[in-house]
Design a protein around this nucleic acid. Structure first.
Length: 477
RNA sequence: GGCGCAUUCGUCUAGGGGUCUAGGACGCCGCCCUCUCACGGCGGUAACACGGGUUCGAAUCCCGUAUGCGCUACCA
């Protein structure tokens, strides 16, 4: 068994394409087959080498590891021409000299008449003398579609039926000598011994053309599996309008490749047994294209983000450090100083980018911490703020050892001695240490910062108290 | 327009004639945990598109309608 993923390099790796690649990989792994990567760049107008490279690097990032290739169709142009000529020689294809303008006029006419446009087929009837007379003229090669029923069994859709009468004599070779998709895909699937073609649903209607070509080449027709499309939240084909569409964008957002992989695998397929989290290896043991759903699935970013959070909190601090570093800006601190900070924050973020954000207070210097206005307004209240914070400062300066249990005991003892709730100290302390109203458990934060920095931040808050409270009480600007 | 495909909670899905007063997950709501925010735990909200058949019995099989999507290029 051999499968292939065959993207055209006209843009980034679309998440729909990513899922197609994943399903191909999984099916190959499950059945002990191989997987080929083929770049379908026969459209010179739209294909770009840099896109091919981006797609390849996105696949690698995602963990889709193919066995053969990448093969570039642009390296095989001569082969497609030869095969088209073979079909012409065999009377299964013919040269067509109709111009784009003529065809367009026919199309217009058909439209005005309210009828479905079909290629007239007039070049089918060209005689040898006609052909000799036009030998030098630009032309395309068209496939001669003979009437008849075309049926095939799709792994996902089941039995599908088409009538060849409704299929135009489609172009195989363009006037510039480049093959169309229909020709190159079939020639390659034959030459590369592809046994199973799993591709997007948008190719279902093209399949009869391909079957006709396989027959014309006297080749065995592969098994097809047409995957349902991935939709945006607007129920339309996933597009920019409904959110990020490329694997790269999710990577830049701080989504883990294994989370995106897991999420995509679950779009149209379920491992059974109420399972949600599944690794590539586990999926490769039980996945089968035959179990894929027929109906399109909406890409729900919320669920992806939840899943990403699940993966993040299960990773070790070392692993997260390696991945979050790119989001930390210039000169990220070494692993050892961040290990504890990561442990404290990893269950509080859904993406690496979010994680970098919640880690921010731990990364800045004590005197450049910013205080969030809402938190200031909420927690810096009362005429006794300055003495209250001084007492806390002194208590924390004296507490021994400076660990989570002792610092908490010290603070609570202080609060009790003053007849105040512990919150009256805890919340301002949080503001002092993080500048925010929300953070990991505050005594863990203090210990992570260490006594010295804790006291420095507390002192800085005390010093800033008059101006902070003044600005907070102003009706706001 | 023609052809093709699809249709279970808002979303992803389980389900392949009786075990379905339809299960799980995300989201949302409530409660618990609690120094805040997360995490976690508990509970709740919410679906078989519609109409005909077949059958003792249909979410499951068949037909039709509706809706959606795809293809209908010298794009892939």
């Amino acid at each position: 068994m051999k499968l292939r993923f065959a993207p055209s390099p006209t843009g980034f790796l679309h998440v729909g394409g990513a899922r197609t690649a994943i399903f191909n990989l999984l099916h190959a792994r499950r059945h002990g087959g191989r997987m080929l990567l083929r770049i379908e760049d026969t459209d010179v107008e739209r294909s770009r080498q840099r896109h091919a490279e981006q797609i390849i690097s996105s696949l690698q990032w995602l963990g889709v590891d193919w066995d053969e290739g990448p093969v570039y169709q642009s390296d095989r142009l001569e082969i497609y021409r030869e095969r088209a000529e073979e079909l012409v020689a065999a009377g299964k294809a013919y040269r067509c000299y109709c111009t784009v303008e003529e065809l367009e006029a026919d199309r217009q006419a058909a439209e005005h008449a309210g009828k479905a446009y079909r290629y007239s087929g007039k070049c089918r009837a060209l005689t040898d003398t006609d052909l000799d007379a036009r030998a030098d003229m630009q032309h395309v090669v068209r496939f001669k579609v003979e009437p008849g029923a075309i049926e095939f069994h799709d792994l996902i859709r089941g039995d599908v039926h088409f009538e060849a009468e409704l299929i135009d004599d489609f172009v195989l070779l363009r006037s510039d000598g480049h093959p169309t998709y229909h020709l190159s895909v079939v020639v390659d699937d034959i030459d590369m011994d592809i046994t199973t073609v799993a591709r997007g649903d948008d190719h279902l209607s093209n399949t009869p053309k391909h079957i006709l070509l396989f027959r014309a080449f006297r080749a065995e027709v592969p098994t097809f599996a047409h995957l349902p499309l991935i939709l945006g939240s607007d129920k339309k084909r996933l597009s920019k309008r409904s959110g990020a569409t490329s694997a790269e964008e999710y990577r830049d957002m701080g989504v883990l490749p294994e989370a995106l992989f897991n999420f995509l695998v679950l779009l149209g397929w379920a491992p059974g047994g109420d399972r949600e989290l599944i690794s590539c290896e586990e999926a490769a043991r039980i996945f089968d294209l035959r179990d894929v759903n027929k109906s399109p699935a909406v890409f729900d970013v919320e669920k992806l983000l939840w899943m990403n959070g699940q993966y993040m909190m299960r990773l070790s601090a070392e692993e997260i450090y390696r991945r979050v570093t790119p989001f930390l800006g210039e000169n990220p601190p070494p692993l050892e100083t961040l290990r504890g900070v990561i442990e404290l924050n990893k269950s509080r973020a859904r993406t690496l980018k979010d994680l970098a954000e919640v880690m921010h207070p731990f990364l800045v210097s004590d005197d450049s911490l910013e205080y969030q206005p809402e938190a200031v307004k909420k927690h810096l209240k009362g005429d006794d703020m300055v003495p209250r914070m001084r007492e806390l400062h002194d208590a924390l300066a004296r507490v021994e050892p400076f660990d989570v249990v002792s610092t908490e005991q010290a603070l609570r003892a202080l609060a009790e001695s003053k007849g105040l709730g512990a919150g009256k100290y805890i919340h301002p302390l949080r503001l002092a240490l993080t500048g925010r109203g929300a953070s990991p458990p505050i005594f863990d934060v203090a210990v992570a910062l260490g006594r010295q920095r804790t006291l420095a931040r507390l002192q800085r808050l005390i010093d800033s108290l008059p101006s902070l409270m003044a600005s907070a009480s102003v009706p706001s600007s």
